[in-house]
Computed example of a mutant assay.
Amino acid sequence: MHELPQTRELAAFIAVIEAGGFAEAGRHLGVAPSTLSRTVTRLEAQLGVTLLRRSTRAIELTPEGRDLLIAAQDIVTRTEALTDLAARGRAPRGPLRVNAPVGFTLHVIAPRLCEFHALYPEVEVTLDMTDRPVDLIDSHADVAIRFGPLNDSEMLQRPLGTTPWCLVAAPGYLDRTGWPGHPEDLARLTQVRFTSPSHINNLRFEGVSEPVTVPASVHAENGEAVRSLILGEMGIARLSEFMVAEDIAAGRLVQLFPDLLIAEPLDITALYLTRTSGLRRLGVFLDWLGTRLAR
């Protein structure tokens, strides 16, 4: 009688396929690629079939490998669900690495993380801040928070909400240059512009047929840098509401033509590779963050 594969061996096989290779899967799982290669070889020996065709550049599933992948995903999912059921009486614990844009981290996550820590003190959160998309495997991140349309269809996704845009300026800047009475009056002001993506700089308004072009005063790559320049009275800029809501409430910034600005709200999405049923600390973090954004 053949020895049955163990769940962790099946999970390793799935990880190799989902990552597209042994090296990538090894970085994500924190094990040597050679260990994963031996695991797959052992599976092949146990089952008496060839699961993968290997080359120096890629791996390819055999028909038997495709059959095993489907069965393995079902087994691992069911095992994770049973493990989660057994662990519900225990508090989530362990490390959790979160990758998020700088502004979102500084204005949404960091100021409220004490709430999450009070609920789950044994979850050790590491915050990585970057405004550029990252590879979850290369960055060793458990979850990435991203904005706008996504191309990572192979990843697990959870919508967290949306954020509208605000066109803002410092009152002192407008006192000096003159307060605009109509969107077309913005053309005599200056704009703090994003170097990328440049479409954020486009200003369209209801009742105005063409985009309003505002001369640039300075360019910045980072949303938080743009916010600081606006607070420093360098011009006007379009920023996500979560970045400037407190500034508007405190009077440090004013919102210009909020009822006329045409700008689709940005989707906020969490991307991750590990099912939350198998990583409870990730699941409770996403539940908490989604609740915070809903408020």
Rank of each mutant, 00 (worst) to 15 (best):
E18D: 15
A87M: 08
L136Y: 10
S196N: 13
I230R: 03
T269Y: 12
D287E: 15
S240D: 06
A58M: 03
L186W: 04
V49F: 02
F194H: 13
C114P: 00
G172Q: 12
L260N: 03
D287V: 05
T83V: 08
L51V: 01
Y272R: 00
E233R: 09
L279C: 10
D74K: 09
R280K: 13
Y272P: 00
T83A: 14
P180T: 05
R57Y: 08
H107W: 04
D84P: 00
F257W: 10
A81E: 15
V108R: 10
A245R: 15
E115R: 09
P121T: 09
L174Q: 03
R238Q: 12
A187V: 05
Q191T: 05
G26D: 02
W165M: 08
G89L: 08
L261H: 05
P197M: 09
A263D: 01
S198T: 14
L43F: 06
V284C: 13
T50R: 15
N201T: 12
P33K: 10
L186V: 09
D67M: 10
P63A: 03
R193N: 10
G161S: 03
T213D: 13
A58R: 14
Y272M: 00
R97S: 11
T83C: 06
R97H: 15
P121M: 05
G232A: 15
E224R: 08
T62Y: 02
I200K: 14
A294P: 06
T276K: 08
E206A: 14
T50L: 07
L113T: 06
V98A: 03
P171D: 01
E24Y: 00
T276P: 07
F147R: 09
I268K: 04
Y173N: 00
E233D: 12
F22C: 08
E60A: 15
I75P: 01
L52I: 09
H28S: 11
V125E: 08
A237K: 04
I145K: 06
V226T: 04
E246S: 14
D287A: 14
R93V: 13
G290Y: 07
T62R: 01
D74R: 12
L231P: 02
D131I: 00
G148H: 12
A81K: 10
T163A: 07
T62A: 00
G178F: 12
D247H: 11
D267Q: 12
V125W: 10
T56D: 09
A100W: 04
N151F: 13
S277G: 11
V125N: 08
L231D: 03
D84S: 15
V123S: 11
S153L: 10
E122T: 13
T177F: 06
I262V: 11
F147S: 11
T274D: 13
Q191I: 02
T41E: 13
E264T: 14
D84W: 10
E241F: 14
I248G: 00
A263E: 12
A170K: 00
R275C: 02
A270D: 03
A245V: 14
H107S: 11
E64H: 15
R295M: 05
E44M: 07
T291V: 04
T79L: 03
P258T: 12
R280V: 14
L36V: 04
I14P: 04
V134M: 14
M129I: 06
H199C: 03
V212E: 04
D247M: 01
V208L: 08
R275E: 11
L106W: 05
T269F: 10
A187Q: 11
